[in-house]
Design a protein around this nucleic acid. Sequence first.
DNA 1: TTTGTTGGTCAACGCCTGTTGGCAACGTAA
DNA 2: TTACGTTGCCAACAGGCGTTGACCAACAAA
Lengths: 197, 197
Amino acid sequence: MTGKAPAAPSADASPRRSDTTRACILAAARERFAADGYERATIRAIARDARIDPSMVMRYYGNKEGLFAAATSADLRMPDFTRVPREDVGRVLVTHFLDMWEDGGVLTALLRVALTNQPGAERMRTIFEEQLLPVARAVCPDPAEAPTRAGLCAAQVLGLALTRYVLRFPPSVALTREEVTRWLAPTLQRYLTAERP
Amino acid sequence: MTGKAPAAPSADASPRRSDTTRACILAAARERFAADGYERATIRAIARDARIDPSMVMRYYGNKEGLFAAATSADLRMPDFTRVPREDVGRVLVTHFLDMWEDGGVLTALLRVALTNQPGAERMRTIFEEQLLPVARAVCPDPAEAPTRAGLCAAQVLGLALTRYVLRFPPSVALTREEVTRWLAPTLQRYLTAERP
DNA sequence: TTTGTTGGTCAACGCCTGTTGGCAACGTAA
DNA sequence: TTACGTTGCCAACAGGCGTTGACCAACAAA
């Protein structure tokens, strides 16, 4: 059972001649998904951007869902919040999310797709659950409240991303990173560490 | 120029025999747009829900964009914030938005569509600009800062709607209206009335 | 050189989409 | 009754979609 598919991830380090092509496809896919959402980001358009034939996409990623999954393997790369002073949690969280969101458009693509695509929404939920929930558990007063507090933070962070990077509301776009941090950090700090209102 | 199209809005009160059908189409369209987004809400599916022929949709609303525009004529119905005590604006704003969002799914449809559809995004922006900005202007310390403050409120409100009504993050869904108000009201209050940080 | 694997193109498939025009049934005013 | 505008269904169109399989070129091992 050596497998016919050349895409089989047999070992981790298996440099193939087609790696550059694969990377081109993924980059084009990320851009298209981020710009157009799942339905309007057609395989044909992605292939055109990557200057290859649409059938290559199918060969390397199976189908459109596989391509999407490969193009949006997001990792929020959370820092270790047990080492962050408790009163700085809000600020660190905001700056970290700004970093993540402005890097490569993976999260923008994920957000756009999550809105019209059930698996996309599920993945978004998983990402935030796996990566934001532990932060809340580490710093909030009662661990039982961690999901609620993480959810509130997710709402605020995603709302800013929505208005700033997707809908592009002018006031939200005009804010500098500094200003975003000054406004949002106290909010997240309160959601995470304040007594339940 | 009497117009061939029976859909011509000549007068405001022109009861037609087809009014119930038109209403059925709009209701079905709102549901489909809210559930599936713009691309996947097909005219055929909407017509099936309304138990009529797809061509009727075209006759009454011209094309798909016209149908969408008719189905999502949103009005946030803002109360008069000059009569609200200054320290209550956050709370009133949250409860009002919860009311709006849980009524009929118009806003959910609009949000879903705005994410993958340029005119949809533009309309969302317009709605918030026309209706949230005056509120900010009425209550914030420096009117020049009103757009920024309205934008921050929009981010928080849309973020909650996103996680609660669209992505359905469990912690966000589990919150009661009471809890949402208690958590979010102070945030909006600060965004609107606090000194610039 | 031969042989087999990989990288890539081409043409086509079946399906679904938004949209159109023709045609029958109904209701109403003359 | 006749004439006409409205309401509705039906069948079809052109085009785009995801997906498939046959086929050629380049390379690597024998």
